[in-house]
């Protein structure tokens, strides 16, 4: 049974229909990525699945007692609110010092518990948010552009971390990205969104879909061209993409 599913979901802001007829599901243990250009409704979709944004039509169903670990795109902490990393990890459920430190070690933030949240860099904040999400022992991790504040090496290592977490805990992952290159390699399934679901499937299927190529306007210099080139010649060395550096031409 699916962990979470959307059944013909529409979301409207006033008269504007932001999401149209979305049906999707996430099964245990899979990594699903939602791809789409800016303004395509990616974040809104995630927020609708979380129940933050009301659904105008259709319905969202969650497995009973589903534990979700949510990592928002950003977290603005008011400077008037003093809070250490350690204290933040105990929200909303208090955790022991050992568990907190384990989680920090897991995300590469060992010994940083005493730092103030407001002093963290973008990458450190993402890692702390992930640590906090992991402490809830989620069956489903929902990540909204988790690497938007990271440079490219940071990005690659963040996705490796996500894969490790999936392997260790068996948690499914539903994440948003507009970064084709790394995400394609790290996903089991890709959903291509632009107000509606344009196409969906394994990275290979989606990358060949005409809707997808039209949406991202990929030419011969596109990231996807690189990706597909690589993919077609990928004989399973496992890390086909990391030595490539290219401009992102999709945003």
């Amino acid at each position: 049974m699916s962990l979470i599913s959307a059944d013909h979901v529409c979301v409207r802001f006033g008269d504007e229909e932001v999401l149209h007829d979305i049906s999707l599901k996430v099964d245990p243990g899979e990594i699903v990525t939602i791809l789409g250009p800016n303004g395509s409704g990616k974040s809104t979709l995630l927020r609708a699945l979380l129940g933050i944004v009301p659904v105008a039509e259709g319905r969202v169903a969650r497995a009973e007692g589903l534990k979700i670990g949510y990592v928002p795109q950003r977290l603005m902490i008011d400077r008037t609110l003093p809070i250490t990393v350690r204290r933040f990890l105990s929200l909303p459920h208090r955790v022991g010092d050992d568990a907190a430190e384990d989680a920090l070690v897991r995300v590469g933030m060992a010994g940083q518990g005493a730092k103030q949240m407001t002093t963290l860099s973008g990458g450190q904040l993402q890692r702390v948010l992930l640590a906090r999400a992991l402490l809830g022992r989620p069956q489903l991790l929902m990540l909204d552009e988790p690497t938007s504040g990271l440079d490219q090496p940071g990005e690659a290592s963040f996705y490796r971390l996500i894969e490790e977490v999936r392997r260790e805990t068996g948690a499914a992952v539903l994440m948003i990205s507009h970064d084709l290159h790394v995400v394609m390699a790290a996903s089991d399934r890709v959903i291509c969104l632009n107000g509606h679901i344009c196409c969906e499937g394994t990275p290979r299927v989606v990358s060949n879909a005409p809707e997808y190529r039209a949406l991202f306007g990929l030419g011969t210099q596109g990231a996807l061209a690189l990706y597909r080139h690589e993919h077609d010649h990928d004989h399973g060395d496992g890390h086909p993409h990391h030595h490539h550096h290219h401009e992102h031409d999709h945003a």
Binding site: I52, Y70, P72, L75, I77, L91, P92, M142
Partner: peptide
């Protein structure tokens, strides 16, 4: 705990 979570981020509160 709930007040503090909701104060930090309404989205994080919702998700929890």
């Amino acid at each position: 705990q709930s007040l503090l979570t909701a104060t930090l981020s309404e989205d994080l509160a919702h998700a929890a």
